[in-house]
């Protein structure tokens, strides 16, 4: 394997672009469905926002967070997830890639398999749905939440988003790596990622301690939005310094997930498709 890894970063970048354009061209064979995907994702995600909005009409605050602050916090979830599936769609769909035998063909190419998993797919359409909603919420809510638009804050938001992308990418890479042991990992992914991610729609301080602990130390979704928003807005309890940790947590977690991937890939047995 090592003898082949002579590509320069520039070559990787060019390849990434080529793979993506190929993938998008294949997607555009079904124009109607592809375009509707964005709309469907947008509508689906709007439902959770509308639910939040209607709840707040009745209760006005949730644990000290008002509507503007909650939407500001929520926008990080959409923004970071949208960029996450732009990059890590292949990791998310890895079970299918293994089942269809596509991964076998990746292994025959003189290219890092994980690079191929990442570069051969990108969920641009769903990204537009999540990202569009995230952007609308963010632009609407940051003023409402009393966050100033300074250069320093922009930099911090970018760092938080990068951290959020890495955290969610890592939490998708873990179930993807488990595919090497389990062959079918979609339920693990569902519980570990999608169900747990559902918690961070609301401030985690409303949940029992055990769930707060889980979301901070084991599956650190709280670093995607709660701790950073807490830092920007100044509402809520717990961990003032924790917001600075988002990019660090992202890097460490992604490193660990990468280790799991490296261990797992040595066990790979084709599904014989």
């Amino acid at each position: 394997m090592r003898t082949f890894s002579k590509h320069t970063p520039l070559e990787y970048a060019v390849l990434y672009g080529r793979f993506l354009s190929l993938y998008m061209r294949s997607k555009m064979q079904y124009k109607m469905d592809t375009l509707l995907t964005s709309a469907a994702v947008l509508i689906r995600e709007c439902v959770t926002v509308v639910t939040l909005y209607l709840m707040l009409q009745k209760f006005s605050v949730i644990n000290g967070w008002d509507l503007g602050q909650l939407l500001f916090m929520y926008s990080f979830v959409f923004l970071s997830y949208s960029l996450c599936i732009l990059v890590f769609a292949g990791v998310r769909d890895f079970q299918g890639i293994v089942h269809q035998g596509e991964f076998d063909s990746y292994l025959t190419k003189p290219l890092n398999p994980l690079f191929q998993v990442i570069s051969r797919r990108s969920d641009l359409m769903a990204m537009l749905g999540h990202g569009g909603l995230g952007l609308i919420l963010f632009l609407y809510a940051f003023r409402e939440a009393g966050v100033e638009a300074t250069g320093m804050n922009v930099l911090k938001v970018v760092l938080v988003l990068i951290g959020g992308i890495l955290i969610q990418g890592a939490l998708l890479l873990v179930p993807a790596s488990l595919t090497f042991w389990l062959t079918k990992s979609s339920q693990v992914q569902e519980v570990m990622f999608y169900q747990m991610r559902g918690f961070i729609a609301y401030p985690i301080s409303i949940y029992p301690k055990i769930i707060q602990w889980l979301l901070t130390y084991l599956l650190p979704f709280a670093f995607v939005n709660y701790y950073p928003a807490h830092y920007f807005v100044g509402v809520g309890s717990g961990g003032d310094g924790l917001a600075y940790l988002t990019p660090v947590v992202g890097l460490v977690l992604f490193g660990l997930a990468l280790l799991l991937w490296r261990t797992g890939i040595n066990r790979y047995k084709s599904t014989g498709n």
Partner: peptide, 21 residues
């Protein structure tokens, strides 16, 4: 392909049927 329509239908029903609120 019905994925998009299924998703939209599920979202609408979730909200309008009183399942979430």
């Amino acid at each position: 392909q019905t994925w998009s329509f299924m998703t939209i239908k599920n979202a609408v029903i979730l909200l309008v049927s009183g399942a979430t609120i």
